[in-house]
């Protein structure tokens, strides 16, 4: 039976369920479990739920060492840009140690953070930095867009034997939706067709899925059938589902909140150019953020980011309308 719940609640449910299931799962971060009244502290104790100083390098590096030696740490990093402070641990330690050891060790951990906070957080707290991470062999990246995916991908991330960057979108946190009860694990590398269609393939992640579905609804009223695909994990990336959809529709629009050259869109465009070029009836169109930092003032911010209107326009343009 599915329950109706918010995205944020779905993530928390998965963490609680996994901590209940496996005593090796620990959860820590800044401003977390600060008092004995904290529900997670009450349930799991202060040994497994910990508060940390503002020390991303140590928070993430300690997770690496703990994972190497038998724990499954989930680190709450709050905002994805905070991980940039500890880029070495994220990109050059966690995903490399297993490989360098010739497969002798594994590093099962989850770096959890929010991203894309398009609500006036300005230049350093609302970016999409996942593009860099999706190109690091050994690191997995999950970008859930719905409450059900938020739960299923968190469970999968915690159970995975590799380092996972789990990024939740701040603008979807309050969104409600049906979430399966009990054990619900979404496999990595399996895209989800959020809306079937026949005229244009539209690929989006995170909050852009919400916007793409709204655009698809608008376009349906004009008789245009859009298929919306959410890869859900960008490393590994399910290219097959996208190429198969392009075979059917012949048209591809890629929506991404990241700047153009640091977007998943650019990567998917490359994959489709190699594997699906002969199916395309029109050039691929990318709807991404402009190549700027994120500005503070609302009209400026809106101008920079993809919107429903921009998506509608892009779909029409690949249809020659």
């Amino acid at each position: 039976m599915p329950s109706e719940m918010m995205y944020a609640q779905a993530m928390a449910t998965a963490i609680t369920e996994e901590m209940t299931r496996d005593s090796n799962v620990i959860f820590y971060g800044q401003n977390l479990g600060m008092t004995d009244r904290d529900p997670l502290v009450r349930k799991f104790g202060k040994s497994r739920v910990r508060i940390t100083p503002i020390s991303e390098t140590a928070e993430m590096g300690i997770a690496v060492g703990a994972a190497m030696t038998g724990l499954r740490p989930v680190v709450e990093l709050w905002m994805s840009e905070f991980m940039l402070v500890a880029m070495g641990q994220l990109l050059n330690e966690a995903p490399r140690l297993r490989y360098m050891s010739g497969g002798q060790i594994k590093v099962p951990l989850v770096f959890k953070a929010g991203y894309g906070f398009a609500a006036g957080w300005a230049g350093q707290h609302s970016n999409c930095i996942y593009h860099t991470m999706m190109g690091i062999p050994g690191l997995k990246v999950a970008l859930p867009s719905t409450p059900a995916d938020a739960k299923g991908l968190m469970a999968a991330s915690i159970r995975d034997d590799n380092p996972v960057m789990y990024l939740h979108h701040y603008m979807t946190m309050l969104g409600k939706g049906p979430v399966p009860d009990g054990d619900y694990v979404i496999p990595f590398g399996v895209a989800d067709v959020k809306r079937p269609g026949s005229d244009v393939t539209l690929v989006a992640t995170g909050w852009m899925v919400t916007k793409s579905l709204a655009a698809a609804e608008t376009l349906a009223k004009e008789g245009i059938s859009v298929e919306v695909i959410d890869p859900r994990t960008i490393a590994p990336l399910d290219v097959d589902t996208i190429v198969n959809s392009v075979k059917k529709t012949g048209r591809l629009v890629l929506v991404d909140q990241a700047p153009r050259h640091a977007s998943v869109a650019a990567i998917i465009a490359g994959e489709v150019a190699e594997r699906g070029f002969h199916h395309l009836k029109a050039p691929v169109k990318m709807v991404t953020a402009l190549d700027t930092s994120i500005p503070y003032s609302e009209p400026l911010e809106k101008y920079v980011l993809p919107s429903e209107e921009k998506i509608v326009w892009a779909v029409k343009s690949v249809l020659g309308k």
């Binding site: 300690i62 060492g65 703990a66 030696t69 038998g70 641990q89």
Partner: peptide, 10 residues
């Protein structure tokens, strides 16, 4: 140094 500290956490 952070990894060793993590092993101590384990």
């Amino acid at each position: 140094i952070a990894h060793a500290t993590g092993a101590a956490l384990t």
